[in-house]
């Protein structure tokens, strides 16, 4: 069961530009296990939307099947959501996006949902550069079916039943870059500081924004020997970049170490503030991004931050040259060629 949270707001809660408090960005009470990493990501999504003053009803949340895919019920209660079928969120999101280009699309998936059953759709939604935020809540296992290894489980990692995973892991972030995703970031559910700005940047990104978020499954994959447990991730994390998103037209109120930072400008004038740690790595260079990921992997580190971004590539609507008016708002007068034209068409078949 999902429970509706009581709508009680403290008068002193801070409000955003729209006059909403964070409450307006929350959803039903979560039914996930206490401590599940997925809940932290849901909270971060709510926070990011709140901070960007996004109208909740202008967001569409679409997911596949899994514990992770349940989470859209737990954030943005005033948005429409669609919990579709296992592994097929990208296609539903594609159709929805084609119908109305004006909404913000949140696709939520799991590592089983994306890296196994849904791998084909994951690959192709990247290829089309659909304008959406694609979040994988990656716990290295199938939470909802009780803890089987997933395709992102690291080779040699131990699951709850004690067996060692003999197969190589699929590295979704490297793959996404390789496939030409125009925005690729990696983070950890326990790191709000990093996750919220990345989510904000992803929302602002005018194309496909992929976030691979390591999200420990406390019930089935938080044991010693697992490489997706809280302890393991905390010990092996290495942050690379993305300090904050600076919305256009707004005061910059965070200070940066000038010598180590770089900007990425987004379509609406916002900028992502990046902090370069590795000198040989440039977030607009696919090769160095892939290199950095490979090197971190060799050192058994998890590289987090904004790994790659490219704001020049056309999203699917631009590629298809669709009209600026959302297709779902076009009426008969635009859509139906009419009786006279039909007469001419008939004539052509005589």
């Amino acid at each position: 069961m999902s429970y509706l949270k009581p709508l009680f707001s403290h008068p002193k809660l801070p409000k955003n530009k729209l006059g909403y408090t964070l409450k307006e960005y929350e959803g039903s009470l979560s039914t996930l296990c206490a401590g599940c990493g997925h809940d932290s990501i849901s909270a971060a999504i709510a926070r990011a939307c709140f901070e960007l003053s996004i109208e909740p009803h202008l967001v569409a949340k679409i997911s596949g099947i899994g514990c992770s895919s349940k989470t859209p019920t737990y954030f943005l209660g005033n948005s429409h959501g669609f919990n579709s079928v296992h592994g097929r969120m990208p296609s539903v999101a594609t159709g929805a996006n084609m119908a109305n280009r004006d909404l913000v699309y949140f696709g939520v998936s799991g590592d089983g949902d994306s890296a196994s059953i849904g791998m084909g759709q994951f690959v192709h939604v990247i290829r089309r550069n659909l304008n959406m935020v694609y979040v994988v809540m990656n716990n290295g296992c199938y939470g909802l079916t009780k803890g089987q290894d997933s395709a992102t489980a690291d080779q040699g990692s131990k699951n709850k039943s004690g067996s060692i995973n003999p197969f190589q892991a699929i590295d979704l972030a490297s793959m996404a870059i390789e496939l030409g995703a125009s925005f690729v970031a990696q983070s950890f559910s326990g790191d709000k500081q990093q996750l919220i700005p990345l989510l904000k940047a992803a929302i602002k990104h005018p194309g496909f924004a992929f976030l691979n978020v390591i999200s420990p499954c406390v019930t089935f994959n938080n044991n010693p020997g697992s490489t997706k447990s809280y302890d393991y991730v905390r010990e092996h994390i290495e942050a690379t970049s993305a300090r904050d998103l600076v919305p256009g037209k707004e005061e910059i109120n965070v200070s940066y170490d000038a010598g180590k930072s770089t900007h990425v400008e987004l379509h609406d004038g916002s900028e992502i503030q990046l902090n370069k740690l590795a000198l040989d790595w440039d977030p607009e260079d696919r090769n160095s991004a892939v290199n950095a990921l490979q090197k971190a992997r060799a050192k058994e580190e998890i590289l987090t931050g904004l790994l790659y971004v490219n704001t020049d590539w056309k999203d699917l609507h631009r590629t298809l040259n669709t009209t600026k008016t959302p297709l779902n708002q076009l009426k008969e007068n635009t859509l139906c060629p009419g009786v006279k034209t039909l007469g001419q068409i008939n004539e052509g078949f005589r």
Binding site: P90, S91, V92, A93, T94, G95, M98, A99, Q121
Partner: peptide, 13 residues
């Protein structure tokens, strides 16, 4: 599969 998913997404929207 994807074709039908897209159709459903579009109609839903």
């Amino acid at each position: 599969l994807a074709a039908m998913g897209m159709v459903i997404g579009a109609n839903w929207n």
